[in-house]
Design a protein around this nucleic acid. Structure first.
Lengths: 373, 373
DNA sequence: CCGCCGGCGGAAACCGGTGTCAGATTGTCC
DNA sequence: GGACAATCTGACACCGGTTTCCGCCGGCGG
């Protein structure tokens, strides 16, 4: 083998005058469904330049209707789709959205992810997930590298990383559009999808008050979580409005985990008199309360009413099933996606887009009842 | 609004001569940490051609050690990372791996996803998730479009879509490397990460036999799931080995869901004499059994032993906590990622890679005990 | 001392799209 | 019918990498 024949690409370095055209006859004139097509193939088939095809693809108004129809028809017939990487390169954008989270609650993440993904695909974007460790030294660096490396068009953050002010500041400096999923107005509303946790917690208070409970306790989430604060205050204030109090000894600070829920419940149930109802910060915590009640032989709901928050699948799996606040997580994913793309496209000033909030609602199940005998 | 101005793209129809240039003089000669660098910047800083820099990045052996070190140092100093889209375009590969699933089990998906993602990032790949509906008419078309459009380098499939023979056939035709997460050897081992469900189910049988149970029932998953068959057969055979039988009236076919678990348990507990132990096909199903036991006032584990499968978070949340088989899902994600990348890189023949299996193990908790009084 | 060979470095083409802008093609009006 | 403006079209450069091709260089044998 004296000469490696290289590839099929024949280059003619300096014999300019020779060939009138680079490609004598186009190899593909008949639509061939088995092959990958380029924009050049389409252009050749339609007898136009690739630029015109590009204009059709990008819905430029400067194409005659007749031409557009012809090209569209050909594109559909041969099943052409433009190469995303090539477009990304030329547009200097990736059409990629990042989902940043450090959330142990799997159903929350999956549901959000799927809600966002569905909306993003429809709009021509893809989602790249980025689980992270918010306590790591590399935390910010890591996210920064992720964003710059992938040239993300924007990111969505789930709590609790969505509450990190330093991170938001970094994103602003990076000029990376972002949406924060969050429980309070910590930022310009156009950067937020808010869950009205304060009002939701008030709804729980109302439910318990109506059932006739008077000794009510709460296991809040960690104070470093905004949602924990919102739920606590909303709950406490709403109780006060009804002439009920939430004394300090009936407030326990957990960490939104099963284990902390069990530990906090143990402390609360040691009080005398003990509470007749516990509002757990989330469903995981409520499961911890169940655990403690089970070990202590405290009957739910006869001796203890338990309310959760999230309506994760766990809530209906527990026995008795758990009364809880349902968050429309999938919808939040969709809304975040739509809002973010609107921002990226520069149509962020519509008032409807400006403030995006969702209102959880109470799902009453078996774990709540009137205060026990 | 007479004319729709289309997009924000402002064209300046005929004022050509105005702007002399886009970039006056190369903006970056001094390493500037705040700016994006190109391979040309690095080449300039190192006094070499961009080709040499490219050689260093791609670990070509044809670079002098001294030169390589200098360039590497500069790359690190300015924090340069090559543009993924540009590389993808030039390499005609995307460095993207797809994760295809239609799995309602959120913790399973999240854990797998995170395991795979961690490994993939280390190897220079990204993961693009693709939830889908395996019963949709668009199912195959949808996945095909996903793969060809994104030019995926490979895909990983979770059960049950991993068991779809037509899908696997399509991937082969597309020449798209794939890994199937699966419970039986349905394909060339080098395309599989297998979970030894048959042996695991046998372990459950052994556990129950040792506890002294003789009337044992099973709620299997849907027969269309390979794991359901494997678990049933492994369980049934292992019982037979110990002189115990699994009579047809003690086998119920569920659908791996909470609701089906409850319904099947209801049927099983109506038998007379009723079983003293139920092996549920997965933890969700086991939760359904708990539900029915709760409604019927059957005490677990005193009157009924329940065993699950998966060790999802739910297992430890239930009261009493659920004895179950733990699957190392995150590890499976990592293994699938490593195996897939090995295949893509063409080093798939190593025997260690050829067969990849994981062995779930039993986690004994409170839901299993000797047969009741 | 010369010529050959192999390793290294650089210019230019290329991947598959898009932006720019001049030129061609219409349509309109006088 | 001709001039002019508005609308369409296409040649060309470019995005940021990789690959091809070629030439330079040094080391070696003759």
């Amino acid at each position: 083998m004296p000469k490696k024949p290289a590839t099929k690409v024949v280059r003619l370095p300096a014999k300019a005058p020779a060939e009138p055209r680079a490609r004598p006859q186009s190899p593909v004139l008949v639509p061939d469904l088995a092959r990958k097509h380029t924009i050049n193939d389409i252009a050749r088939l339609a007898n136009v330049s690739k630029k015109t095809v590009s204009r059709v693809i990008n819905e430029s108004p400067f194409v005659r209707e007749e031409t557009r129809a012809r090209i569209t028809e050909i594109i559909k017939r041969v099943g052409f789709t433009p190469d995303p990487q090539a477009r990304a390169l030329a547009f200097r954008r990736s059409f990629l959205i990042g989902l940043i989270y450090d959330n142990p609650n799997a159903p929350y993440v999956i549901n959000f992810q799927e809600g966002a993904l569905g909306a993003l695909r429809r709009m021509g974007y893809e989602l790249v997930v980025h689980p992270c460790d918010r306590h790591s030294d590399e935390f910010l660096t890591d996210i920064r590298r992720f964003i710059t490396r992938q040239k993300l068009d924007g990111v969505v953050m789930l709590p609790p990383v969505s509450e990190n002010a330093t991170l938001a500041e970094m994103l602003r400096k990076l000029e990376c559009p972002y949406i924060r999923i969050i429980a309070a107005a910590l930022d310009d509303p156009k950067n937020l999808v808010m869950s009205m946790d304060r009002q939701s917690a008030a709804e729980v208070a109302e439910h318990l008050a109506k059932l006739g409970h008077r000794r009510i306790a709460m296991i809040m989430g960690p104070r470093s979580f905004r949602s924990a604060i919102e739920r606590l205050e909303g709950f406490s204030n709403a109780l006060a409005d009804r002439g009920l109090s939430l004394p300090p000894e009936f407030i326990a600070e957990g960490s939104y985990t099963f284990e902390s829920g069990a530990a906090c419940a143990d402390a609360l149930l040691s009080r005398s008199p003990r509470p007749t109802a516990i509002f757990a910060g989330n469903d995981e915590t409520a499961a911890g309360v169940y655990r403690t009640a089970y070990l202590r032989g405290v009957k739910i709901p006869d001796e203890l009413t338990v309310i959760g928050f999230d309506d994760s699948p766990l809530a209906s799996r527990l026995c008795p099933s758990l009364t809880t606040m349902r968050q429309p997580i999938r919808d939040m994913g969709r809304m975040a996606a739509e809002k973010l793309v609107a921002k990226i496209s520069g149509i962020s000033d519509a008032p409807a887009i400006a403030a995006t909030t969702v209102h959880p609602h109470l799902v009453v199940r078996e774990s709540s009842g009137p205060p026990g005998k």
